[in-house]
C-alpha cells in the first residue's frame, strides 16, 4: 500500500527550502518529453504533407480539426485561439491520467499539478474577461445588487479550487483503490484481476476527467468574456 508521493533526492535549495525530485516530477518530464517528441515529429513531417491526407497526416489532421470544431461548439465564435491551447492541456491531462498504466505515478494525483493547471485557467478567465468586457467586468461583481459582492467574489475563487480538487480527487481516489487492491492480492493474481479496474480508473475515468477539465475551463472563459 504505497500511494504517497516519494521524494527521491534534493535537487536544489530555494532560500533554504529543499526542492525534491519527486515521482510527480519524473512522470511529468516523461510526459512532456513524449508530447515534445510528437510535436517535433509532426513539424518534420509537415513539410511532406500533401493536399489529400493519407495515413499519419490523416490522424493528425482529424485530431486538430475535431478539437477546433469542439472549441467552436462549446465557446462560440471569436475564440479560435483557444483551440490549440486546450488541445495541449487536454493531451497533457490525458497522458498524465494514462501514465498509471505504464507504472508511473499519475502526476494529476498531485495537488501541485492540478493546482497549476487550474491557475492557468484562472488567469485566462480573468485576463480575457478584463480585455473583452472592460468596465462591464467590474460591474459584473456588483450585479444584481452590490450586496451580492462577497458572494460573487467567493464564487470566482471557488472556480479554480473546484477545478483543481475535482481532477485531483478523482485520480487520487483511483490511485488509492488500486494501491489497496494490489496490496490485498497475492503476487500470482496481480496479473489478470486488476486489469478491469485499470480500464475503469485509468482509461475511463481518466479520459472523462480530462474532457471535463477542458470543457469546464472553456465554459468559464466563454462565460466571463461575453458582454451583455
Amino acid at each position: 500500500m504505497d500511494f504517497s508521493i516519494k521524494n527521491h533526492r534534493v535537487l536544489f535549495h530555494l532560500w533554504d527550502t529543499p526542492v525534491y525530485l519527486t515521482d510527480t516530477l519524473i512522470a511529468t518530464w516523461i510526459i512532456m518529453g513524449a508530447l515534445i517528441l510528437l510535436a517535433v515529429v509532426v513539424r518534420v513531417r509537415l513539410r511532406r504533407f500533401q493536399e489529400v491526407p493519407r495515413g499519419f497526416q490523416n490522424i493528425i489532421e482529424t485530431m486538430v480539426e475535431s478539437m477546433d470544431n469542439f472549441t467552436k461548439t462549446i465557446m462560440g465564435p471569436g475564440f479560435d485561439e483557444f483551440g490549440p491551447y486546450f488541445f495541449g492541456v487536454f493531451l497533457f491531462i490525458l497522458l498524465a491520467n494514462y501514465s498509471g498504466l505504464f507504472g508511473l505515478r499519475q502526476p494529476t494525483a498531485d495537488l501541485a499539478v492540478t493546482g497549476a493547471l487550474a491557475m492557468m485557467s484562472f488567469v485566462l478567465i480573468h485576463f480575457r474577461g478584463i480585455r473583452m468586457q472592460k468596465r462591464g467586468y467590474i460591474k459584473e461583481y456588483f450585479s444584481p445588487h452590490p450586496v451580492f459582492f462577497p458572494i460573487n467574489l467567493v464564487g470566482e475563487i471557488s472556480k479554480p479550487v473546484s477545478l483543481a480538487f475535482r481532477l485531483f480527487g478523482n485520480i487520487l481516489g483511483g490511485v488509492i483503490i488500486m494501491g489497496l487492491i494490489y496490496g490485498m492480492l497475492p503476487l500470482a493474481l496481480r496479473i489478470v484481476l486488476p486489469d478491469l479496474l485499470h480500464a475503469y480508473f485509468d482509461v475511463f475515468a481518466g479520459s472523462l476527467q480530462a474532457f471535463i477539465f477542458t470543457i469546464l475551463s472553456m465554459t468559464f472563459i466563454a462565460q466571463k468574456s461575453t458582454t451583455e
Binding site: 480538487f165 475535482r166 480527487g169 478523482n170 481516489g173 476527467q209 469546464l216
Partner: peptide
Amino acid sequence: AVAETCSVY
C-alpha cells in the same frame, strides 16, 4: 462531474 465535486471534497 459537477455533481461529483461535493463527494470529492
